[in-house]
Amino acid sequence: MEVKNVNTIEVKWWIKKFQEKISSEKSYLTDLDQAIGDGDHGHNMARGTAEAVKVLEAKTFTCPGNVLKAVAMTFISKIGGASGPLYGSAFLKISQTLGIEETIKDALFISALREGEKALRQRGKAVLGEKTMIDVWSPVVAELEKANSLNHEKMRATAESCMKATEILEAKKGRAAYLGKRSVGHIDAGAYSSYLLFLSLAETLAKRGE
């Protein structure tokens, strides 16, 4: 198997793709959050990712870690709500784990994602099955660990199926938890935006070496 790396340009693509997907699915995210939350997730994420793209375009970056640190800081200061600190903390930890490597081997990238996932759990104090973004992050990272490579097909497939699986869950964390059983039957908004995040990463990875 050929060894591949993730470089600065690719992580920028990732974030740009994420921003585009969020922007075009903004009103669907709003609908999801309105059904069992307060309806701001689409706007929060659109605002945050648009700002992040602006920052990435304005500066030059020497390594993926620095790109994602800038993304993390932007998410923290521009998203707000629950998703701001969550995505922010995850990206901050990812960037710290990547350090200043210029090209990132799959193994390092996977462990960075794991550190991000842990930060997310720590910040939100949620566990698997509580109908949050964790329900996408944890299985996706576990799948990559099992595959021992940034397999973009598995990433996409797992993210999608786990996002869909949040529909039947009863929320235990976040605003949807206030609805109790009435939260069943709706996809979690944060799980959907996390699906878009991994879909963007998968699409970026699929283009590697093309």
Partner: peptide, 12 residues
């Protein structure tokens, strides 16, 4: 003050 119905961010 955050955005409408959205918690303000830590920097603020």
């Amino acid at each position: 003050a955050g955005e409408v119905f959205t918690s303000p961010t830590p920097d603020q």
